[in-house]
Every structure is written in structure tokens, then in C-alpha cells.
């Protein structure tokens, strides 16, 4: 288990950088911005006194919620 809930976001950011060449180019900046906003939200929730478990759950829901959009984009780009 990760100690800091925002670790999940940083991990996702790392993978975006690593896969940058394979992702559709037009989606990379949008994804990066989205992850920056997730990090901001995580920090804000922490400052507001939310527990790490609450924040982790919140981040998990938010990351999962756009997963389908990401798959749609990749499917559109690759025609699959």
C-alpha cells in the first residue's frame, strides 16, 4: 500500500512520460494537465484535513472515471 495517496497520481504521471511516444499525441498535454489537477486536488483535500484513506479513495474514483475516455481516444486513433 502506498503511504501517500498522491503517489498513485505520480505513478500515473511517470507512465504517461514513459508511454508518451505510444499515446496519441493530442491527448498527452490534456492528460498531463488532468494529472496536475489531480495532484492539486489531493493536496487541497489533505490541507482540508481529509484522511489519507479518504483521499486515496477519491483519487481512485477519479482516475477510474476517465479510464474509459482514454480507451475511447486510443481506439479512435488506432481504428480498433
Amino acid at each position: 500500500m502506498q503511504d501517500d495517496p498522491s503517489d498513485a497520481i505520480h505513478d500515473a504521471d511517470f507512465f504517461i512520460r514513459r508511454w508518451q511516444d505510444d499515446l496519441p499525441p493530442r491527448i498527452v498535454p490534456v492528460l498531463q494537465e488532468h494529472h496536475r489537477n489531480l495532484v492539486d486536488l489531493s493536496r487541497t483535500l489533505k490541507a482540508a484535513g481529509r484522511s489519507p484513506e479518504e483521499i486515496r479513495q477519491c483519487v481512485h474514483v477519479l482516475i477510474t472515471s476517465y479510464e474509459h475516455k482514454l480507451i475511447e481516444v486510443i481506439a479512435t486513433e488506432t481504428g480498433s
Binding site: 494537465e33 488532468h34 486536488l41 476517465y66 482514454l70 481516444v73
Partner: peptide, 13 residues
């Protein structure tokens, strides 16, 4: 802010 980037992502898709 997150919502707006989600809308941008939706638009790209």
C-alpha cells in the same frame, strides 16, 4: 479545475 480538464479529455475522445 479537474472538471474542466475532464471536459477537455472528453472533447478529445
Amino acid at each position: 479545475k479537474l472538471l474542466v480538464s475532464q471536459m477537455e479529455l472528453r472533447l478529445v475522445s
